[in-house]
Every structure is written in C-alpha cells, then in structure tokens.
Amino acid sequence: MNKKIISSLVAAVMISAATTFTAYAAMANGSVVIGNKAFGLAYANDPTNIIEITNEIVAGGAIYIKNFQGIWINNKTGLPVVAGAIPAVVYKSATEKIKFDAADKDVVVTTAVDNAAKIATATVAVVKAEISRLKADIDSASAVVNALSSDFSLNTIREELITRLKLVKALDITDPVLNSVSLVIGQSVSATKNAGGNFKVSLAARKDTDMLTAITLNASEKATIKILAMGNSKTFTTDDSGKVTIIVADILGSFAPKGDGMSVKTLKNYLTLMNDAVRLNVTLKDGAGNETATTITITAY
C-alpha cells in the first residue's frame, strides 16, 4: 500500500510535467509536501527512506507536488493550486535540510499558476455540463469559461471549451403547463385557473340555445394532450406554440352530436345526471417525456 502511495506521487509529477505552464519558487521543482514536511522526489522515492515517508503520510496532512515545470499540484484532486496554499515546511533532500516559510514565499511568477487553476476549473465545469446536460450546469460552465483570459496563450483553450459547450444540447426537464382554456359557447368563454393549475368554467350565464362547439387549449410548449371525459379517451397534439382547438364531439364522443356541437340545454341535462358537473382529466406530455396532469371542470351553475 505504501509503495502504491509513493508511486502515485511520482505518476502525478510525470503527468503534470507535460503542462506548458512555468513558474519559479524557492523549493526545487520535483518536490513533494506532506503535511508540514517537504522532500525532494529522489529522496522520497529512495527505498531506504520509505519508513520515514510512510510515517509522514500516516501522520496526515495535505499532499502537494511541485512538478518539473514549477506548478504546485494538489495530489488528491490532481488540480493546480496557487503557492499560497503551501504551508511552512522543513525541506529535506539527500544533501540538505532547509526551512521554507508558508506560501513558498520566493515565487516570482504566479500568473501561469493562476491560469492553470482557472483552466482546470473551467474544464471540470464543461465536463459536468456535458454529462448532466442541465441548463444550470451549462450556464455555470459558460460563465467560468467566458471569464477566462482571452490573451493569446489561453485563447485556443478558451475557444475549444466554448465550442464544446455549444455542442451540449440542454436536457429538457421542465414539465409542460396548461396556461389557458377557453370554450366556444356561442362566443369564447375563458375558464378560470386556480392555484393548483386546474380549470373551471360555468354554464350559468349561457343561454340554453348557445352551442358548445369547441375547446381551445394553450400549453407552455408543444405537447401531446390526452383527455379522458365521460369514459371517452383521446389524444391530441398541439402546434409548435402549444395551442390546439378540439371540436366537442372529439372530446365527448357519443355524448355529443357531430357538426354543430352540443347545445347548452343538452349539456346541462347530461350534467344533471352527474351532480351538475363533468370533469375532463387532461395529461400533457412534451417531446422529452415530461408530464403534467390537470383537470377542466364544466359546471351547470
């Protein structure tokens, strides 16, 4: 297990050495910090020192590696960190033992380290957006990527991340909503929507000779709409704006005559048999499979 830990430190340095960023600091490139101790990698990986190194790992504390380009890397996350994250340490190699103050004080170039950290953060955000396809993650990643410097050294990376985000199609997780319902009863009569999203319309103010001919539904997006009423079930599809107009015979089936629709008097007679109200159970389903259920109640009074 200890050999595996030491090997991982070496591997991390080898991987991070491939980066093109540069920085200069007091501790030598190719160093490892374990807690409040620091070692040259040659010393840390010498089999004769394995007990000493293992004891420091077991004692706990964060592990940081300065790669051969001078970038500090958090060994746990694999991401670059600024020199300010490095604690005060006693550095030990095969030939020397030196005390260094916190933050690796002699750093003279920090911009490259900061850029490396920002690029790593932006890349992680883009990967998260690519996996989740959630709009919130896409927006968050876009903000981080757009905040990257557009100077020449970062421009290619920034543009690549922007291109990747443009290819991410947001996952539709928003349920379709029935925004309004109106009945054509001689004239258009709007149903009242309650806080629960259900609708109600009364025939009390309509004349017996008025004809109920159609119902118009307006949804928040294009959707299929399944309506169950008086034992009759049928499914309709809205236009791209979410609107669909349905003739009453297609909703009430055999209860409604074809052609001119149903008179208010006839409908009220039916409603009398059903405690003066009929309920249309409506289910909306969008192209992404999101569903919403609501009801439209038609009352006699």
Score class of each variant (00 low, 15 high):
Ser132Thr: 06
Ser132Tyr: 04
Leu134Arg: 12
Asp137Tyr: 01
Ile138Pro: 02
Ile138Ser: 07
Asp139Arg: 03
Ala141Met: 01
Ser142Met: 09
Ala143Trp: 07
Val144His: 11
Val145Gly: 06
Asn146Trp: 07
Asn146Met: 07
Asn146Phe: 06
Asn146Pro: 03
Ala147His: 04
Asp151Cys: 05
Asp151Phe: 06
Asp151Arg: 06
Phe152Glu: 15
Asn155Val: 04
Ile157Trp: 09
Ile157His: 10
Glu159Phe: 09
Glu160Val: 06
Leu161Tyr: 06
Ile162Gly: 09
Ile162Ala: 13
Thr163Gly: 13
Arg164Ala: 11
Arg164Cys: 05
Arg164Asn: 13
Leu165Val: 01
Leu165Gln: 07
Leu165Gly: 05
Lys166Trp: 05
Leu167His: 13
Leu167Asp: 14
Val168Glu: 09
Val168His: 11
Ala170Ser: 15
Ile173Leu: 12
Ile173Phe: 10
Val177Tyr: 09
Val177Thr: 09
Val177Trp: 05
Asn179Cys: 04
Asn179Trp: 01
Ser180Val: 00
Leu183Ser: 06
Val184His: 12
Ile185Leu: 07
Gly186Glu: 06
Gln187Asn: 13
Gln187Trp: 08
Ser188Leu: 08
Ala191Glu: 07
Lys193Phe: 01
Lys193Ala: 09
Asn194Gln: 10
Asn194Tyr: 12
Ala195Ile: 02
Ala195Leu: 10
Gly196Met: 08
Gly196Ala: 13
Gly197Met: 03
Gly197Cys: 03
Asn198Pro: 03
Phe199Ala: 02
Phe199Ile: 00
Phe199Met: 00
Lys200Ser: 14
Val201Met: 10
Val201Trp: 08
Val201Asp: 11
Ser202Lys: 01
Leu203Ile: 00
Leu203Gln: 04
Leu203Val: 00
Ala204Ile: 03
Ala204His: 09
Asp208Val: 00
Thr209Phe: 13
